[in-house]
């Protein structure tokens, strides 16, 4: 979405036009869902939290002043939602009961989520697809072992392609701290997965 076009959708959504907000959802739902999915590793929770993020954004949109980019603002809501869910989960009071392991196909089917078993290229070699699915699974497990802040920084930078400045802004920390978190995340990921001779 072009910045000018995006600004137009935001203005119209701010005035209460649901169709304009629909265009914003289309533009950002993948990024928001993927981020939350990376943090929670539960498609049911990720789906529900993504919906909550957009509902909160709709309610808060009249107060959005554009001091940060819209994407940064939206990810700030997503980050807060994920952290809040994490806190509830920690004390065993998560509002959304995780009914399955993240790889449980039955549960995934209930929400229509296809687990990431394929690469972005549909005609990719099946054996390569299986290999990359296994690697992705290992990566997910390694990411789960990262401290929360390092996990957030790695995911936002690597998967969501947010700049370090944007990440610093939305997490409310210095850019230098973001770089340090990213460095430690890269180091730990490599250690978790078998040392320097192995791929991440």
């Amino acid at each position: 979405m072009e910045p000018v076009e995006e600004q137009r959708w935001i203005e119209r959504a701010r005035e209460g036009e649901a169709a304009a907000f629909g265009s914003i959802i289309t533009a950002y739902q993948r990024k928001v869902f993927n981020f939350i999915m990376g943090m929670t590793r539960d498609p049911v929770v990720a789906d529900e939290l993504t919906q909550e993020v957009f509902l909160k954004a709709w309610k808060a949109l009249p107060r959005f002043r554009g001091e940060s980019g819209f994407q940064t603002w939206l990810f700030q809501i997503a980050l807060n939602a994920t952290r809040s869910w994490g806190r509830w989960k920690k004390i065993g009071l998560a509002r959304f009961v995780s009914l399955s392991e993240p790889t449980d196909r039955d549960q995934d089917d209930k929400i229509g989520y296809a687990p990431p078993l394929t690469d972005a290229h549909p005609d990719a070699d099946p054996s390569r697809q299986t290999e990359s699915a296994a690697l992705r699974e290992r990566l997910s497990r390694a990411m789960d072992r990262l401290p929360p802040r390092e996990k957030e920084v790695f995911h936002l930078r690597h998967y969501e392609d947010l700049s370090l400045k944007e990440i610093a802004q939305l997490m409310g920390i210095a850019e230098g701290s973001v770089k340090a978190h990213l460095f430690h995340a890269l180091e730990k990921m490599r250690d978790f997965l078998g040392g320097p001779s192995h791929v991440l």
Partner: peptide, 14 residues
Amino acid sequence: QPGLMPASVEESFW
């Protein structure tokens, strides 16, 4: 590595 590429999700889900 391919494991670090974005995964695809069915369009119907979105």
